[in-house]
């Protein structure tokens, strides 16, 4: 069922295609002018932590963490074109009524693709606002039939060494894996995104289909999904397995729980330039009203 979540913003708030293309021309055209524009934007972002003006397509597609293509922020934009995204299929298995390998077309068929303008908060303290296009994960899960015993959903990213150069380095234990508790997965904010800015998902952002869980740190929103498993045990997740004290299973955005290497009290919105002001990080990334009830009675410091 689509349209359960209503953002205060509408598609009209998305920067029109002409405008963001223009912005890029300005950037290229006059360095000084661009510098001034960036400085003004920085001040604006600091004034309003709730500001939900989407970042430009260039910003969203040029600064990415997708370690399968390298650990540099520009590496995904540089190398992700090597990834074959069609044909694409997802293996859905575990505690479901209709397990199997579904083609992407099959998965999307019948779903209402809607726009969701979400904040994206990286654990490294930078953030973006992205106009995603996608559908609720619960709609897919209901279609394949979740069995009563299932408590968690596990996800896996494509791991194709000949197309993903970063896999040569054992940065983490490949393939990339993530997971959600079933109630988190069924929450109307949780979507499978197939595009952004009304275009098919760029490869570096997790083409052709990725998870978006806006109240959790960015690494929970797993990219280029090839497998979804319903299970009754908390699944192994990539960063949690690498450093459990740094990356918890829940990984809810929480300014009160400091990551051992980064304080999480503030963040910096991409696009503010060299003099961007930091802004305060919001509990659950600003989605507290929508999701806090999922964690009633839970110690969010212990279960970080």
């Amino acid at each position: 069922m689509a349209r359960r979540y209503a953002s205060k913003l509408t598609w009209d708030d998305v920067t029109p295609r002409e405008a963001y293309l223009n912005r890029r021309q300005i950037m290229a055209g006059g360095a000084a002018l661009a510098g001034a524009t960036l400085m003004t934007r920085g001040v604006q972002a600091a004034q309003d932590a709730w500001d939900l003006t989407p970042n430009t397509l260039e910003q969203i597609t040029s600064y990415n963490n997708f370690y399968e293509f390298g650990t540099g922020k520009e590496d995904p934009a540089r190398h992700a074109h090597m990834m074959t995204t069609a044909p694409w299929s997802i293996q859905i298995d575990g505690m479901v009524d209709s397990p199997g390998t579904y083609s992407l077309e099959d998965i999307i068929a019948g779903q209402t693709i809607e726009e969701r303008i979400y904040r994206l908060r990286c654990v490294e303290r930078w953030s973006l606002v992205v106009p995603w296009n996608g559908f609720e994960l619960s709609d897919l899960l209901e279609r394949v039939g979740v069995q009563d015993r299932a408590r968690y959903v596990a996800f896996e990213t494509l791991a194709r060494p000949e197309e993903m150069l970063g896999l040569r380095v054992p940065v983490i234990d490949w393939p990339y894996r993530e997971g959600l508790r079933l109630d988190e997965a069924m929450h109307p904010l949780t979507i499978l995104a197939t595009g952004l800015y009304g275009q098919p998902m760029p490869n570096q952002n997790g083409a052709p289909i990725r998870l978006v869980v806006p109240w959790k740190y960015g690494y929970k929103s797993i990219k280029s999904i090839v497998r979804i498993t319903l299970t009754d045990e908390q699944p192994v997740t990539a960063w949690n397995a690498y450093a459990p004290n740094e990356y918890g299973f829940y990984s809810n955005v929480n300014p009160n729980r400091a990551h051992p290497r980064w304080s999480q009290e503030f963040e910096r919105r991409i696009g503010g330039g060299l003099f961007a002001r930091n802004i305060e990080t919001l509990m659950f990334n600003g989605y507290e009203d929508e999701v806090a009830h999922l964690y009633d009675g839970m110690d969010l410091i212990e279960f970080h």
Partner: peptide, 15 residues
């Protein structure tokens, strides 16, 4: 470069 967009969209960390 960082001040004028030559070091990407998050110039602070890059610089």
């Amino acid at each position: 470069l960082a001040a004028t967009g030559g070091l990407g969209v998050e110039p602070i960390n890059t610089l």
